[in-house]
């Protein structure tokens, strides 16, 4: 700001000058919003139960894989002497299976847990009270987005980490590189889908609508990437397949250029979805 502005302020708000001096920056406002979101996650117990569910899912997969031959043998009612040949599962395959489990149950739970994050406050009118204060629309959306990211990346890490540890205990050690690489790729996929949820939570009145639209989009993208890999390799939908490959290939996955594009388009799409959410919110900060 320039000097003229200061003078202008000085003449009209002279009495309040000390107060405006103590005003903190937009960064503090953003942190306040983020703090509120995290406190809400904690008080609604989401920050506790979602990670636990992921941990349970993550442990179950290697345990099931390990006991599967025995379970089949016991339950199979096979005639005496039948030799069941079930190849011992590869550790990396178990990790990939865990990811695909997260891809169904995990994303469903996260999308349902986050579906009302904007629409709930907008429908009740709670957002109106926040947005009449000098708060930027972008920081409102970003604080919500960041809290979703915290919850989803944290839960995924906990669940996938548990799966990795149990795989090591029960089956075999899987190298850290494929584990981390597949984790990051899958986390990016989660981020993309949940940012779609956030957008529709801003766009739609109904929270369920937001969850199912974003899950529908996720299914569509993965199916398309599976059906016509040649043409959809650049789309975020290819990320899940990429993550499975990363988990099962030893060492660093050799990523093709098209695969890199999947990562880049996902990042761009997330940024664009966030920008669209801000625009939508700005257009109608509250409903009656």
């Amino acid at each position: 700001m320039n000097g003229a502005n200061e003078v202008y302020r000085g003449t009209h708000r002279g009495a309040e000058a000390p107060r405006s001096a103590t005003r903190s920056s937009g960064g503090a406002v953003f942190l306040t919003l983020l703090g509120k979101e995290c406190l809400e996650l904690l008080r609604s117990f989401k920050l506790i139960w979602v990670p636990i569910v992921f941990a349970v899912l993550g442990i179950m997969q290697p345990v099931l894989s390990y006991y599967m031959p025995i379970i089949i043998e016991k339950a199979g009612n096979m005639p005496e002497g039948t030799v069941i040949e079930i190849p011992a599962p590869m550790g990396s395959q178990v990790l990939a299976d865990t990811l695909s489990q997260f891809g169904v149950m995990g994303i469903l739970i996260l999308a349902l847990a986050c579906m009302g994050i904007v629409s709930g406050e907008r429908n009740s009118g709670a957002s109106a009270l926040v947005l009449v204060k000098p708060v930027s629309y972008a920081s409102y959306i970003l604080s919500k987005w960041l809290s979703i990211m915290l919850l989803s990346w944290g839960s995924l890490l906990l669940g996938y980490g548990a799966a990795w540890y149990y795989t090591w205990l029960l089956i075999e050690y899987v190298d850290v590189v494929p584990f981390l690489l597949s984790f990051v790729l899958y986390g990016l996929w989660f981020s993309f889908v949940l940012t779609v949820t956030l957008l529709f939570s801003t766009a739609l009145r109904s929270a369920a609508g937001a969850a199912f639209t974003s899950l529908g989009a996720a299914i569509l993208l993965t199916v398309l990437a599976g059906l016509i890999p040649k043409y959809m390799a650049w789309s975020p939908g290819a990320l899940t397949g990429l993550a499975y490959q990363a988990a099962t290939s030893p060492g660093w996955l050799q990523m093709e250029p098209a695969s890199w594009w999947a990562v880049i388009t996902a990042l761009i799409a997330i940024a664009a979805l966030l920008a669209a959410s801000v625009v939508l919110l700005k257009r109608a900060p509250a409903r009656d």
């Binding site: 903190s24 509120k36 009118g125 000098p134 708060v135």
Partner: peptide, 30 residues
Amino acid sequence: IGYLPQTPAFHNWMSGMEYVVYAGRLCGLG
């Protein structure tokens, strides 16, 4: 501007004190 809507809606999981502090922080108070 300070604004009070006809039927104000708050975050029901917050306490009264927490909410007013939160509101103050959003307005840039320390």
